[in-house]
Every structure is written in structure tokens, then in C-alpha cells.
Amino acid sequence: MTSTSTPPGLARFNDLEEHTALAVLHEACASTAWGKRLIAARPYATADDLYAASDAATATLTAEDLAEAMAGHPPIGRPRSGDPASAREQRGMAGASDELKAEMLELNLAYQEKFGHVFLICATGRTGEQMRDAAKERIGNSPEQERETVRTELGRINRIRLARLVEEDARP
């Protein structure tokens, strides 16, 4: 089914039973629609094929699908206990000052009050200050602008998480 040039993690993912593959994808993105679209397009010959399918699926997510995806993300500055992906991705807040953490908490609450969902940003490689500044800037967006910004950020997060799946063992 998969060629010898297919990365081992991707080959394992291609070979997983559907329910197991959906569980693996749910760890990357909590949107059921996104996961089902990626499953339907298996097998993937290359990581780029998987990323392209992810981008296409992310582009078609409805407002409800986006809400489901965002529900799987903890607020910035409060990674989920026992979730290594969350802690790794939010590393930029780990060494932040108490003042910056308090400011981020206030921004998270104000953002959630305005938009009705968690502030979603691809935190990988960003400092706490960069995340704070992005939250300050984005809180001024219209709901329509912010929905598209969230879609873009979700796509970035999904690609990073899928890259880990391709590079590592695909078993849950």
C-alpha cells in the first residue's frame, strides 16, 4: 500500500484502522470533520501530500468545526497538565514573568468574552511577549476577520503536529 520512500511514521499512519487513525488525528486537531477528511484521502505517499490534505480540510471547516477544533486547545499560558504537546508548544510562556502571565490571563478572558472561544495562536517558537502582543492586536478584529485568522493559526498548528506524527511512531 505504501512505497518504501514513505516515511515510517506516515506508513504506520496509512496502515492504521480507521478508528485508531481518527484517534491519532484527534490528538493533532479536535475537529471531527478535519480528521474524517484526512482519513478519506489515505494513503499518503509523502508528508507533503498529508499537509496539503490538512490545509484543504482546514480551509473547508465550518464555524462549528472550528469551534470543535478550538475546544481542544487550552488557553495560552495554561497548558493542560500531562499534555506534553501543549507544554512543548507553549514553551514561550514557561519562563514568563508573573506580570506577563497575569496580563495574558486577562487578555485570554477578554478575548474569550468578545469572540466566545479560546485565543488560538500557533505558539511554537513564539515568546510570551509575542503571544501577548498578538492577543492585543487580534482582540480588535471583527468576528469574521478573527475566524479567518483562527483558521490560519489552526492550519499552522495542525502542520506542526502532523510533522511530529510523520517523524514519530503513529500509534496512540
Rank of each mutant, 00 (worst) to 15 (best):
P43Y: 09
P43M: 06
P43I: 10
Y44T: 00
Y44W: 06
A45R: 12
A45Q: 13
T46H: 09
A47C: 13
A47S: 11
A47H: 10
D48A: 13
D48S: 11
D49T: 08
D49N: 14
L50Y: 06
Y51V: 11
A52F: 10
A53F: 01
A56P: 04
A56S: 13
A56K: 07
A57V: 06
T58D: 01
T58C: 11
A59H: 08
A59K: 09
A59M: 05
A59Y: 04
T60A: 13
T60M: 05
T60E: 13
L61C: 13
L61P: 02
L61N: 03
L61S: 01
T62G: 09
T62I: 09
T62F: 09
A63T: 10
E64H: 08
E64Y: 06
D65A: 09
D65I: 03
L66F: 02
L66D: 03
L66W: 00
A67S: 14
A67T: 13
A67P: 02
A67E: 10
A69G: 08
M70F: 07
M70Y: 15
A71Q: 07
A71C: 10
G72K: 06
G72L: 06
G72Y: 00
G72Q: 03
G72H: 00
P74T: 12
P74G: 04
I76S: 00
I76Q: 02
G77R: 00
G77W: 05
G77E: 09
R78H: 04
R78W: 08
R78G: 05
R78S: 12
P79D: 03
P79V: 09
S81V: 11
S81N: 10
S81C: 07
G82I: 11
G82V: 05
G82R: 07
A85P: 02
S86D: 15
S86A: 15
A87T: 14
A87I: 15
A87Q: 15
R88I: 04
E89Q: 09
E89C: 02
Q90Y: 03
Q90V: 12
R91A: 15
G92M: 07
M93N: 04
A94Y: 14
A94S: 15
A94W: 13
G95E: 07
G95I: 11
A96S: 14
A96E: 12
A96V: 12
E99Q: 08
E99H: 06
L100A: 05
L100S: 12
L100V: 11
A102Q: 13
A102V: 11
E103R: 14
M104D: 00
M104E: 03
L105Y: 01
L105R: 09
L105H: 05
E106I: 08
E106K: 12
L107F: 01
L107N: 00
N108Q: 14
N108Y: 04
L109R: 14
Y111F: 15
Y111I: 05
Q112F: 02
E113G: 07
E113I: 01
E113S: 08
E113R: 14
K114T: 10
K114H: 11
F115G: 03
F115P: 01
F115D: 06
G116A: 07
H117E: 10
H117W: 08
F119S: 03
F119W: 07
F119L: 11
L120W: 00
I121F: 01
C122T: 07
C122Q: 13
